[in-house]
Design a protein around this nucleic acid. Structure first.
Lengths: 219, 219, 219, 219
DNA sequence: TATGAATGAGGCTTCATTCAT
DNA sequence: AATGAATGAAGCCTCATTCAT
C-alpha cells in the first residue's frame, strides 16, 4: 500500500468517527436513490454502496428503511426551502415581487429535480410519511405566510384584484413549477424535447409568469 | 355452500373460455394496484387477488410483471383519451371552446385519479415503459392535433393572440389539471383540505380557466 | 390470404390427419431438443414449437414428458443401429473386418452426435429409462453377436490373439468412438479445436484403429 | 433434545462465522447434487438440505445457481488434478511411466465418478461454463505439459515411436478412462455388469494399458 | 461507534399437465 | 383426432433486517 493510499484511508476513517458527517453522507445517498427509484424501488444495498460507510450504519442511525426515507424527505424539503429564502420579496413592488416569485420558483424547482421527485414519490405513497413530519409542516407554513404578506401588499397598493387566496396562489405557482419537473419524462417522451431545451424552458417560464399575473393582477 | 355462492361460482366458470374478458379483468385490477402502490410496490399476488382468475393467468397472458404493467399503462391512457373525445370543440366558438377544454380537462383528470397516478408512476420510472409504447404515442398525437385546430380557429377569428403553440398550450392545461390530482396528497397534507372540497375545486377550476385564457386570449 | 398460402395450409392440415407422421414429427423434434438440452433442460413448449402440431398432441400421443423421452431414446438407438447394418463384416478377412469396424464406428458416431448426446443424457440419468426398454436391449444384443462372429473368425484364422472378449472389444471400440463425440465440447474448450478439424479427426481415427488392432491382433 | 444433538448443534454454531468452511460445505453439497442430477435437475433446495447452512447462504456467497455450478465445476477439476500430482512420472523410465500413467488415470477416474459426471454434464451444456473458467484452463494446461515431458523423454530414449502428439495421447488415455465411468450406467444396463466387477475393471485397465502402449511404443 | 456474516419472509416466474369442447 | 384455455406445484431469487463480536 502506497503512502498516498494510506493517507486516503486515514481520511476516510476520520470521517467515520464523525457521526453527523456519516449521517449526512447517508441521507444524501438516500435522497439520490429514493429520487431515482422510489421508495420500494430503492435498495438499501444501493444506498449503502453510494456511501462511505457500511450498510449496517444505516440501521444503526436510522433504524430501518422507512426511518431513513423520512429523514431523506425532510432533508430534501429543508434544502429547497432554505434556497427559497434567498429571494427577498419585500424589497420589490407587489407586481414585481409576484413576477419574481413565479420566475424564481419555476427555476428553483428546475434546479432541484431530486426534491420534486421525492415529493412525487411521497404523493405515490399518499403523503403517509410527510403527514407525520412536523419539520416539513413548519417549513411550509413559512411559505404561505410569505405569500399572505405579498397579497396584502398587492391588494393595498391596488395592483392585485381583491380576494386573492394565499393557498390558491401557492397552488397556481406550484402547479406550473412542479409539473414542469415532475412530468418531464412522460411529457418529453410524448411531445418531444423542444420544451425542455434552454429556450423552451425560458418560454414556459414566461408563460407561467403571464398565467399567474394574468389571473392575479387587476386588469 | 349457499345458493348465492354457487351462482357466483357458476358465473365465474362462464367467464372462463372468454380470454378477452379475463384479460380485461386482469388489466383493470392491475391498474388499481399499480396506481395504488407503484410498480415495485404492487404485488402480483395482490393483483391476482382482485381478479376472478388465478395468478397464473397473469403470466399466461402478459408474460411477466412488466408486461402487465405496460398493458395497464396503455389501457389507462386509452380509457382517458377515449373520454376526452366526448368533448366536441368544433361546435363551439374558439374562446368558448378553449374555456370548455380547460374546465373539462380539469374535471376529467379529477374523475380519473388512477390514470394520473399511473402517469406519475411512469414518471418515477423515467417514462421507460411509455417510451416503448406506440399505442400511447398515437393516442397523444391526436390530442395535439385537436389543439392545433383550435388554435388555428382562434387565431383566424382574432380571439387568440398570435403565436400560440399547441404543445405549450397542452403543457399549460396539463400542468394545472394534472398537478391538482397528482399532488393532492402532499398538498392537502401541508395546506389543508379546503382546496379539495367541492367548492375549493370549483374555485381552482375557475382559476385554471382564468390563467389559460388570460395568457391565450388577445387583450 | 393468397392461394399459395392456402395450399400450404392445406398440406399442413393433411399431415395432421396422419397420426404416424405426426408422431414421427414430434419424436424428431424431441430428439433434437433432448439432445441439445437434456431431459430437464428440454421444455415441452420448445419441443412443440419445433413441431407442426400443438403441444397438446404430445400428451395425446405420448402421455407425458417421460413417455416422449423414452420413445425419443428408442428412436435414436434404432436409427443408429440401422445405420450400422450397412457394414458387411463377413465379406472381409478378420483383420480387415476389424479395422473397417473400428473406422466405421468412429465415423458413424461422429455423424450422429444427437444419438451420442442422448446416450450421455441417459447416463446422467443413471440409465433409468434405457433399462426399461426391451427395444433397445434387443438392438444391442445384435451388435454383440456380430462381434462374437468376427472374433471367432479371427481366432480361427490365427489373426487374433486368443481370449478376445466380445463385450470388452465392444467397450474398447465404443470408448474411443463415443468419447470423441460426447466430450468434444469440453475437450476442445480445454485443448483447442485442432483435434476436431477434418485432418485431426482423421488422425484420431487412425489412432483408434491402431489401438484396437494393437491389442487384438496377434503380434 | 438428546445430548448428542446438542453437541452437534454446538458444533454447527461454531461453523458460523467461518465463511470458508461454509463455502466449502456448500460447494461439496453442490458437486454431489449436480453430479447426481445435472444442472437443471439439481434443486437449490436439495443442495441446501445437504448443507449445514441455509439456502439463503448459497445466494449470499454464490449469487445464483449458475454461480454455484461454476464454482462446483472448478472445485471438481481442482480436486482431481490435485490427486494426479501424486504420480511422479519423472521417477520412472518412459515406458514404465506411460504404463503407470494410463493405469493410474484409469483408476483415478474410477475413484472420482462425481468429477466425471460433472464433466459429462458440462458437455451436455456445450462446455459453456467451463469455457469461461480460467482456473480450469490453467489446471489442464499443466496436464498437457506433463505429457510433453514424458513424450520428449520417450522419444529421446528410443522407446516411443516418433511423432507422438501430447494432445492426442491425452485424448487416448482420457477416452478409455472417462468412458469407463461416464457410460457405466448405459453400458452395464445393455451388456451386463461383468465388466464393472473388480476383476472386470482390472481386465479393462490391462486392455487400456495395452491399447495405449501398443500405439505409442516402438515395435 | 462500528461491522462482516447470516437469515426469514416473501416475491417473481416456470413448467408439466389437465380441462372442456 | 384435435385443441385453446387454464392451472397447481414448485423453483429461483431478492430484500430488509438481525446476530455476534
Amino acid at each position: 500500500m502506497t503512502k498516498a493510499l494510506k493517507e486516503k484511508k486515514k481520511t476516510k476513517v476520520s470521517w467515520k468517527q464523525d457521526p453527523d458527517r456519516v449521517k449526512r453522507d447517508i441521507v444524501n445517498a438516500a435522497i439520490e436513490e429514493f429520487a431515482r427509484s422510489g421508495l420500494s424501488g430503492a435498495k438499501i444495498d444501493d444506498i449503502s454502496a453510494k456511501t462511505d460507510t457500511s450498510k449496517r450504519m444505516i440501521y444503526y442511525y436510522f433504524g430501518d428503511k422507512i426511518g431513513l426515507y423520512e429523514r431523506a424527505l425532510e432533508a430534501a424539503y429543508q434544502k429547497v426551502r432554505d434556497g427559497e429564502r434567498k429571494l427577498d420579496l419585500d424589497a420589490l413592488a407587489p407586481r414585481d415581487a409576484l413576477e419574481a416569485l413565479v420566475a424564481f420558483t419555476f427555476d428553483h424547482h428546475r434546479r432541484n429535480p431530486d426534491f420534486i421527485r421525492m415529493v412525487m414519490i411521497e404523493n405515490v405513497h399518499h403523503a403517509d410519511y410527510l403527514r407525520q413530519s412536523e419539520v416539513i409542516r413548519d417549513l411550509n407554513a413559512g411559505a404561505i405566510s410569505r405569500l399572505e404578506n405579498l397579497i396584502a401588499r398587492g391588494e393595498a397598493s391596488g395592483d392585485f384584484r381583491p380576494g386573492v387566496d394565499a393557498t390558491e396562489l401557492h397552488w397556481q405557482i406550484s402547479a406550473l413549477s412542479v409539473f414542469n419537473v415532475s412530468n418531464k419524462p412522460t411529457f418529453s417522451a410524448l411531445f418531444g424535447k423542444s420544451i425542455y431545451t434552454r429556450a423552451g424552458q425560458s418560454r414556459l417560464r414566461d408563460r407561467a409568469v403571464a398565467m399567474v399575473l394574468g389571473d392575479v393582477l387587476k386588469r
